[in-house]
Design a protein around this nucleic acid. Structure first.
Lengths: 279, 279
DNA sequence: TGGCAGTGATACCCGGCCGGTATCGATAGC
DNA sequence: GCTATCGATACCGGCCGGGTATCACTGCCA
């Protein structure tokens, strides 16, 4: 399988339309049809069902789509990491507006290491793991289970429980504690998918924490978030423990097979906060 | 970057010789030289330093080699998984000679699940994670830190401490307990690398548990292994706790982005042994 | 020190594959 | 049943990947 075939297949699988996919790829439709047909022939299995009115993924196609996206991401990441091997700085991805305390402690401790590199911060509104997959970052601070750690190496740093954040004028604002069922409300904010689109559903669409807090202040939304956000809570917002919400684990994550000494040092320093001895 | 370029580069990087690499690839040497030069040109960085007597990897080349191996593995895995999407069975990789108790419990519990598939066992002498990377298996039972879980999704199942295994006639056989420093001996057995070669060093070369136990029986080797092997210990062997050896964690691992319902079920069943509620 | 063996780079040619245009065949909507 | 839409097919041309022949450099050895 050549990457050209994977790129072509991903385009068709995402557009579900040969014409638009060819357009997006900057080629004509016939060679695209031919390449997909060749790919199917070599794999010995149909990836798409097509009528002249509708294109759909087969089960095999769905599997290959997921794999192909990961592979193409790995390839661009490999290119970037190879090109920037002499990069003077270590790029650390973290969530903008997240807990700056842990981050500050980590950066300070790492800076004190002998041979520490300059650390460049890449602050993300959401999907903090994506820069790791495409090589824009060397290491990231993620939050399970919100962030996807699929295909990454991780080391847990800290676990905490979750709170419902809402306006103090919200009907639930007086509660001592809540359960997930209580907050399964139409006001629950929705975050964008990695491609920038929003899944259908009730609730306002937000794209960063600032916007979320503003929406909550205005009584237009509520959210369930880890404890740390309480620190930076705006006037007029309340945080109420949600006793049965899944625990949130802050982890440090890096690409598998990382050969970077700097990443190893940073991870060691980060995990050292919890366990003094690192095996 | 095309997969052809990656295949070519990996061949040269492993052989460190254009002629042999071209041979291995089944092409002539000149097109290989040209392709590598094009790759370097497009990346804008040298991957190899060559004199007419010696070829060596640059730092960038070392990075790309690691990335390229992972990518090529992911591609063959993607092919296999796409082709075998309608495979009636789930392939589970496990270490031959490992704890069959956990395995039996897991298989029984999974078989009781509604909609459970037949489970095909792939017993490995070593490097149990490799079938996961190249698509020969859907899920594996691994042992950290012995097995590499880089680029895999894992869920811990069980943690245990380690024991030194030796012949009862060994000078240390009478000890109540040992430390790592005590067992850092020339008799420590050596396992092969994934490519089948052995790193230099003292100690006998073994390639499976049966052979290892035989060597230990003969007083030719000792080994440090997790507790479970005590169950199947041969006559004349003793197991002595090594108090400061790193804990061994048995994990269930599967490829990232797995879309298989069966894998999800098996993982849920496996983790259910420990925690009754699964988030 | 000069010849020689070994190795990677270069020059050049050929054939296959990728991408283009033109067109067909099928399907859904009116 | 006409038409618009869309994927498949047919066919052609240029580029690129792979081949052979040869050059240029290095280390070894007499």
């Amino acid at each position: 399988m050549e990457t050209r075939e994977l790129r072509y297949f991903v385009a068709v699988a995402e557009e579900l339309h040969f014409g638009r996919a060819a357009d997006r790829l900057g080629i004509a439709q016939p060679p695209l049809s031919r390449t997909i047909a060749q790919l199917e022939h070599r794999l010995g299995i149909a990836l798409l069902t097509r009528t002249s009115r509708k294109v759909a993924l087969t089960e095999a196609g769905a599997v290959l789509l997921a794999e192909a996206r990961a592979i193409l991401g790995a390839i661009t990441a490999a290119e970037r990491r190879t090109r920037h091997v002499d990069r003077p700085a270590l790029v650390l991805a973290a969530k903008a507006g997240g807990s700056s305390e842990l981050l500050a402690k980590l950066l300070d401790a790492y800076a004190a290491e002998p041979g520490a590199l300059a650390v460049e911060l890449l602050l993300c509104k959401a999907h903090t793991w994506l820069p790791l997959l495409d090589g824009r970052a060397d290491v990231a601070i993620l939050h399970e289970p919100y962030d996807s750690t699929a295909g990454l190496d991780v080391e847990p740093l800290h676990t905490e429980s979750q709170f419902a954040i809402m306006s103090s004028s919200h009907p639930l604002a007086g509660a001592r504690q809540l359960r997930m069922a209580d907050v399964d409300l139409p006001e629950l904010a929705r975050w964008p998918e990695p491609d920038g689109s929003y899944l259908d559903g009730p609730g306002v669409e937000v794209h960063d924490l600032t916007q979320l807090f503003q929406m909550i202040s205005l009584g237009r939304a509520i959210a369930v978030m880890p404890e740390v956000v309480r620190a930076g809570l705006l006037e007029g917002l309340v945080a109420i423990p949600v006793v049965d919400a899944p625990k949130v684990t802050t982890v440090i994550a890096w690409p598998p097979h990382s050969r970077s000494r700097a990443v190893a040092d940073l991870v060691r320093v980060a995990t050292g906060f919890n366990s003094p001895v690192h095996g």
